[in-house]
Design a protein around this nucleic acid. Structure first.
Lengths: 138, 138
DNA sequence: GTAGAAACTAGAGTGCGCTCTAGATCAAGC
DNA sequence: GCTTGATCTAGAGCGCACTCTAGTTTCTAC
């Protein structure tokens, strides 16, 4: 078997990206790669470092809440080559807006939660019960 | 039927909290309320404003990523009355840590995504292709 | 050559958090 | 009384994103 430079097995890519081998096969079925992943003589996937780089970006997009469907749309745009950069930009800008909105939402919730934490700390420190939930609300 | 002051129907609570009536019944089955919700003579749920306030806090906790299971645990602690404030505080502090970690993760992803957006904008503005994903990665 | 690890496929199963269905009952306005 | 809309129960169904299974084949090391 010809193992050309930089050829990576699915296990190595799993290791490098944190995605399970199951997830990598799933991503491939879902059309999330930028190219068809080539196979060795025996039928095993042979990835290259660019695939790993792409997967690391995918991880960022997924972790920040992009759906598989949207990620597939982005992959399709990149796969179909130059000429659609406006669409790619629009997709990324839209996602950026979503992430910023999500952060703002989390910060608003955090303020409420932290307020509760402070209230409980005060209660435990000096024995007042103001602001705590009673077992049977009035 | 005696409609006592402040009695709210499930529809009104749905309106006030943004939770669907289905979700409100689901929450009840899941033990997320601080008390058994009383029923009218005809068997319909009668909520009061304290239930709505609790649900608004639940929304904050859920929106910030707390699972139903953890929320139930918190509800159980509050229901079981005074004496477990240390546990309630620990639960809230743990959740606060998780929210802060999530915000940090989102901000890290945001930096990457924004970097891509800037790259695409530059590309579209002056025609360079550096840093863009090619259709077939080298 | 052989043992054991790793990879293959197609497809079923899982966990979460609702969401919806069906068929019945209840409430409010005319 | 009648219609219309809200609510009731128990339980099935759904969308998402994997995750796992089963049975087979390939690869690596000795």
């Amino acid at each position: 078997m010809i193992r050309h430079a930089d050829g990576l097995s699915i296990g190595q890519v799993s290791e490098a990206t944190g995605l399970s081998v199951h997830a990598l096969r799933f991503f491939e079925r879902e059309g999330l790669f930028l190219r068809p992943i080539p196979r060795s003589a025996g039928g095993q996937r042979v990835y290259d470092p660019a695939d790993v780089e792409w997967l690391l970006l995918c991880n960022r997009l997924r972790d920040s809440g992009m759906s598989i469907a949207t990620l597939r749309r982005f992959a399709e745009l990149v796969r179909s080559g130059p000429g659609n950069e406006h669409e790619r930009l629009a997709l990324l800008e839209e996602h950026e807006r979503m992430v910023r909105a999500r952060i703002a939402e989390l910060e608003a919730s955090l303020a409420v939660i932290h307020g509760k934490v402070v209230t409980y700390r005060r209660h435990l420190h000096d024995g007042t019960a103001a602001g705590l939930w009673a077992p049977a609300p009035s």
